[in-house]
Design a protein around this nucleic acid. Structure first.
Lengths: 194, 194
DNA sequence: GTCCTTAAGAAACGGTTCGTTTCCTAAAAC
DNA sequence: GTTTTAGGAAACGAACCGTTTCTTAAGGAC
């Protein structure tokens, strides 16, 4: 038969695409090695040669082609930047995003779970730092340094809501920004109370 | 044979105990209907008559005997109360607690997931309110009302850390209290900056 | 005490996915 | 052209699934 046989990156890319397709179509729980093998038109043995568990395979497909999923917005105001950041993250973590992240976290060995945690926690503070610096330059915030733990607050609260509770609406985002993040940043940066 | 046959509450209690035992011994993922039936010395049919899914069975065993898992501490200071609250919650959510909660959330139908979310989010603000009121009476905080969203901050940050990241140490708890919660409460309650 | 309804418990079922193994052969390296 | 590597097909025993059937205790009605 005139069948051609893929190898290396071609094959791997086809597998990752099949994993993504299965995830979007059926979700994490219903994804199986057999289903992925069928969708990628390959065999289970090919998958098991690469990844020991379903969670490792899914995580690999998430980290393929190092996507920079969240960018720091620049809207011209502190509230605008924070709102936009949380809206973007809200979309990213909702629906299948939540399903996949919780699925991997609860299904896997400590190594993969640790890598997943790193992925979703890593840039929490760094993504907010430029927002705060620009707000400081505009005079919206004072000049005292804000500790890393506090800089991570917007992403920490977003994660708590979207992964553990439900997708946020604009009111929820507005509350987080207006009632928690901005007042805390003002206080810590030494800006006079308004 | 002199076998006796349990019914009603006796049987249900034995099943719940078996579920708890299996969870502690093997974790959520490795828990099976067959294993629970064996541990409780009953049959699978008895379990399926009561709960449609593993997640529903586990959730039922968690909510049996309405345990009041977290109490509001009263240590005499705002920082002391918050620290104690987070330490208690840290223990509750860690290790098997995380495994079970994430397992149920990622494994189940929307109804059980919703009930689980209610359980872990419900009292987040209310458990903190008496702490703030006492701190206000002592003069540690001002008198402006603190919005519910901000009152939930300690439990929101705890949940984010313990369920999604890892068990906290005392430094982490101290950071949450000292860098986020107390400054925000001071700001929102209108207390003069120290 | 006897009858009658309910549900416990044992056992077996067909089905799905698991993780592994065997075998053949296409693709790449040399 | 020869050798090495790895893709792909197929089959495997095992575990658990969710359901069904059947027997027989338990507990209430009278």
């Amino acid at each position: 038969m005139g069948t051609t046989r893929r190898r290396g990156e071609d094959l791997e890319a086809a597998i990752h695409a099949a994993v993504q397709g299965q995830l979007m179509e059926h979700g994490y729980a219903a994804l199986t090695f057999e289903g992925v093998a069928a969708a990628a038109e390959t065999s289970k043995a090919v998958l098991y040669r690469r990844w020991p568990t379903k969670a490792a395979m899914v995580f690999a497909s998430m980290t393929d082609k190092d996507k920079a999923p969240l960018a720091t917005p620049d809207t011209g105001s502190l509230v605008g930047d924070l709102t936009q950041l949380l809206r973007d993250g809200n979309e990213l973590f909702s629906y299948r995003g939540r399903d996949i992240i919780l699925g991997v976290l609860s299904d896997t060995d400590e190594d993969t779970a640790h890598a997943m945690r790193e992925m979703i926690f890593r840039r929490s503070a760094e993504i907010v730092r430029p927002i705060v610096e620009r707000a400081c330059a505009r005079g919206e915030l004072g000049t005292d340094p804000i500790p890393t733990r506090a800089l991570a607050l917007p992403m920490d609260l977003l994660r708590n809501e979207t992964l553990l509770r439900r997708k946020l609406d604009d009111d929820g985002i507005g509350e987080i920004v207006g009632v928690c993040v901005v007042p805390l940043f003002e206080k810590l940066s030494g800006r006079d109370a308004g």
